[in-house]
Simulated scan of single mutants.
Amino acid sequence: MGRTHVPGLHASWLLLGAGLAAGCASTPTPPVTAFAADGAVATAIVEPPDARHYEVQPGEQFFRELPRRENRAPVYPPALLDRRLGPVSVVARIVVGASGDVERAAVVDADAADPAFAEAVLAAVRTWTFIPLKRIVGNRMEPLPFTQDYRFTFTQENGRAVVVQGAPRGG
């Protein structure tokens, strides 16, 4: 039997081969010579010694407040990353209304570092919302305001591992 010739088939194979070869070629990425500093922020609830609490009366139940998932942690001030500061701690007191919105926020304790850390904390916590604290008595549910202190600790994690792909061999 003879071969059947399909017009353009040979050209299609050539184009496919050229496309595969081009896909394997890549532009070399220059190697990274320095590692960027990454800032991290840890959050903890602080119980001040003079904290006041609602007292549970007979027949009452309380459902604890819950922070919303959308609440964002403060951002390490980008302009301060290159200063390679040690850990910085900021304690903020927030007053949350019965609606679950932050009504007031203030810094109550801060390390003697740059005020940009306190500003970052306040900018974040003022946007926070909560599922409100609730008191249940019989069939009645009453949302309640509350005050809570949070400690934010800013740290840097230097030397983040970087994988460089496509770098030329030998330098």
Rank of each mutant, 00 (worst) to 15 (best):
V56G: 10
L66D: 14
T4F: 15
P143H: 02
Q57K: 15
S26W: 11
P168F: 15
V56W: 07
G17T: 00
A110E: 13
T33N: 00
R84S: 09
R126V: 03
V96W: 01
E119P: 02
A123E: 09
A123N: 12
A51P: 03
P48I: 07
P78A: 15
A42L: 10
V75F: 07
R52A: 07
P7C: 05
E142H: 15
A113G: 14
F62C: 09
G97K: 02
G23P: 00
A167R: 12
G97E: 03
K134V: 15
P77G: 09
V75A: 12
A120E: 01
N158P: 02
A98H: 02
F130K: 00
H53Q: 13
F152I: 07
A42V: 09
T4Y: 15
L66H: 13
F62D: 06
T4N: 14
G86T: 15
A18R: 01
N71V: 08
A25S: 14
P31R: 01
A110N: 09
P74I: 03
R93I: 00
P49H: 07
V75W: 10
F117Q: 00
V137C: 09
A18G: 09
G170P: 08
I131T: 08
V164P: 09
H5G: 08
A112S: 15
P77F: 05
G23R: 07
A110W: 10
W128R: 00
P145D: 09
G59C: 03
A92F: 04
R140Q: 06
S89G: 02
A25I: 12
L14C: 05
G2N: 14
F35R: 08
F63C: 05
A124D: 05
T27S: 14
V91M: 05
L16V: 06
F154E: 00
P30C: 12
R68H: 14
H53F: 15
V75I: 14
P145I: 05
Q57H: 12
G19H: 01
G138H: 04
F117T: 01
V91H: 01
I136V: 15
E103K: 02
F146N: 03
A21E: 03
R52Q: 11
G23S: 07
V95W: 11
D111Q: 12
A36I: 05
P143T: 08
E142F: 13
I94D: 05
E55I: 06
T155R: 14
G59P: 01
A124T: 06
A167L: 08
P132A: 02
D111V: 11
E103A: 04
E47N: 12
L80Q: 08
P78H: 10
G39H: 02
A161K: 04
I94K: 06
D101Q: 13
E70C: 07
A113P: 10
A161T: 11
G23A: 13
A116D: 13
V56P: 04
G138Q: 07
S99P: 01
A34P: 04
R72M: 11
L80W: 07
E119D: 14
A73D: 06
L15K: 08
R135G: 00
R93V: 01
A25N: 10
Y54F: 09
P87S: 12
A40P: 03
V91W: 05
D101T: 14
Q57I: 04
P78L: 12
T4L: 15
C24W: 11
A113K: 04
R93W: 01
T33F: 02
F35T: 14
A120K: 06
V137I: 11
R68V: 10
D111M: 10
R135W: 00
L133V: 03
V96D: 01
P31K: 03
P58W: 06
R52W: 08
Y150W: 15
